[in-house]
Write a protein that binds this DNA or RNA. Structure first.
Lengths: 334, 334
DNA sequence: CTGTTAGCGCCTTCAC
DNA sequence: GTGAAGGCGCTAACAG
């Protein structure tokens, strides 16, 4: 099929090991013959076979990437960051979507195993029991990004949910808001709880008491629907501001507000989390907590590369940044 | 390292060829021993090595996927569609972003070559000269999605730009608009031209003459900036409606309109193309031409699978659908 | 410096 | 039905 080192060896009149060496620029080979071989290889259109190589080196220079779905504005940039560094480092990225379906997840992991990926990165998943177990079995390093699992036996990079939530809360507080609601997420409980606790700490440390009625956990599964669901409740509690689990939830609230004729930020200030692209071109543009997603992806890949070099890696948690836009303002004077 | 068929063979007291056969459910092996072997394999946690297998079968059950960038709301769903079918069919998907950088593209192709992918799918790229050449060299089937290249020596699935543009134009026409502008894209010329010609045909067949001044090609590279740039020009030409190359361009126009105090759709109707997620929650929600992106991804993968089975494949072009939302209305009576 | 030999894990004739 | 032998393309000792 395609040309192999043997073909080159024959042409060059040397043994295939010499070719192998020459191609890897080994100093053990005569410069002249080396050059000749490399030239020949180029001329003959030689491209090494990763499969053959990894069979003997026991490394595939390939990493597996598990995401719930790529068509998630939160995830795509992370993947971009991962892919970027991976490519630079000469690693291939094998994609696997779980769609939050356990069976699919298993299938993906199985595939990774067969492909003998050198490492795995998992983005924003719950990492189910089975799943984690299987991953353990392949005994390759695994880096989790913003994971929802409890076990901390794995490497991870995550955003500092508490710190981010503090930023949001303090911003609202400093604008003069006193009744601030928090809208959580039922599907990503761990993350939601982290943000909630940042919110609560913010209020407490500012000397305000917590009103449990101001914390709302929507029943809806989809974020936008959750935001829509939350709005009436928030209004009922006479909150003047709401901090949402993520931008999509905030967008839901925003849409609902629009429909109910509630004006933002006049009647209610809203802040989201993530800073997905649409945030800034909404009306009003969304004040939100920016997650350095691209960086997180890169960092995860960086950790993985380190782990593959036998080096140790320490978990990283990255800071968020407040992005003030049009959806927040001082409360209406009453 | 991990358990191989030899290990199983030793345990089972048979030769590794028998194990190999048993694992592939060959009828040539005694049912009892076969079962025993399969059970053993499971117990020992055996997972076949794709590398070893492909070395002999000369197929990797892996496809390469080239995208410009994943963090493109247009692309992500396509990738989802591809990945979905690929996984079901037991194929792995190797990711490669080009970032529209020729050097990166070459690198990606080289990687695919080394990995000996069985086929390649390229999404919305220009497929540069070098690039295509390299791809040819690996002599594997290549399916292009909405490509910008001229050569038609490759398989492709694309959306019917003309038909989509007709939908948009006819919609505007039927609302009573007569001065309708078209905003193109300088970076995706071929696609833009396709849509432009649909627009022109629509006008012509409705019996209206074309005003070249109503066709505007922004200089800005980024779509949103392009849309912003286009708006004043469109207004100046006293158009009552504009059809934009894509949703992002439309969004740019929308933002600019907001800033200039131009009301949509009151003063100007706008229709986009693509139907990316933010479209529907903008204010006003965007009337647009929907591309069946997930389907396109799936179809591309379907074609590729067919090609890998030696079957022939015929290029497919898919229809668009008009989605009427709030950004279009009859022109203001004057 | 270079060639020989062996083997990575698997599949596939070809004998038995 | 099953085993022995060879080879996919490459790297890695081990001799020269």
């Amino acid at each position: 099929m395609s040309v192999s080192i043997k073909d080159i060896a024959r042409q060059a009149g040397v043994s295939h090991s010499t070719v192998s060496r020459a191609l890897r620029n080994s100093p053990l080979v005569n410069e002249r013959t080396g050059d000749a071989i490399r030239r020949l290889a180029r001329e003959m259109g030689y491209t090494p076979s990763a499969a053959a190589r990894s069979l003997v080196t026991q490394r595939t220079r390939t990493v597996g990437l598990v995401v719930t779905a790529l068509s998630d504005p939160f995830i795509d940039r992370i993947v971009d960051g991962i892919e970027d560094l991976a490519t630079s480092a000469g690693y291939g990225v094998l994609l696997g979507s779980s769609h939050a379906d356990p069976e699919r997840e298993l299938g993906v992991v199985e595939m990774f195993h067969q492909q003998r990926v050198d490492g795995v990165i998992v983005v924003a998943s719950r990492v189910g029991q089975l799943y984690a177990e299987q991953l353990q079995e392949m005994s390759v390093p695994i880096v989790l990004i913003n994971n929802e699992a409890d076990g901390d036996y794995l490497y991870s990079v995550s955003v500092d949910d508490q710190q981010g939530a503090r930023l949001a809360t303090d911003h609202l507080l400093s604008l003069g808001h006193r009744r601030i609601a928090y809208i959580g997420s039922a599907t990503r409980r761990a993350t939601s709880l982290g943000r909630q606790s940042g919110y609560e700490r913010g209020l407490r440390e500012a000397g305000f008491s917590l009103d449990p009625e101001l914390v709302y956990l929507p029943r809806a599964q989809m974020d936008i629907a959750a935001g829509r669901e939350a709005l009436p409740h928030v209004l009922e509690q006479e909150a003047t501001a709401m901090f949402c689990f993520n931008d999509r939830t905030a967008i839901g609230a925003l849409l609902q507000a629009r429909e109910q004729g509630v004006s933002l930020p006049g009647d209610l200030s809203v802040v989201g989390f993530d800073d997905i692209e649409p945030s800034w071109y909404l009306a009003p543009p969304l004040t939100t907590i920016h997650q350095p997603r691209w960086q997180m992806g890169r960092t995860a890949m960086e950790m993985l590369l380190g782990l593959l070099d036998e080096k140790q890696a320490t978990n990283r948690t990255m800071d968020c940044r407040l992005v003030v836009r049009g959806s927040t303002a001082p409360p209406a004077a009453k």
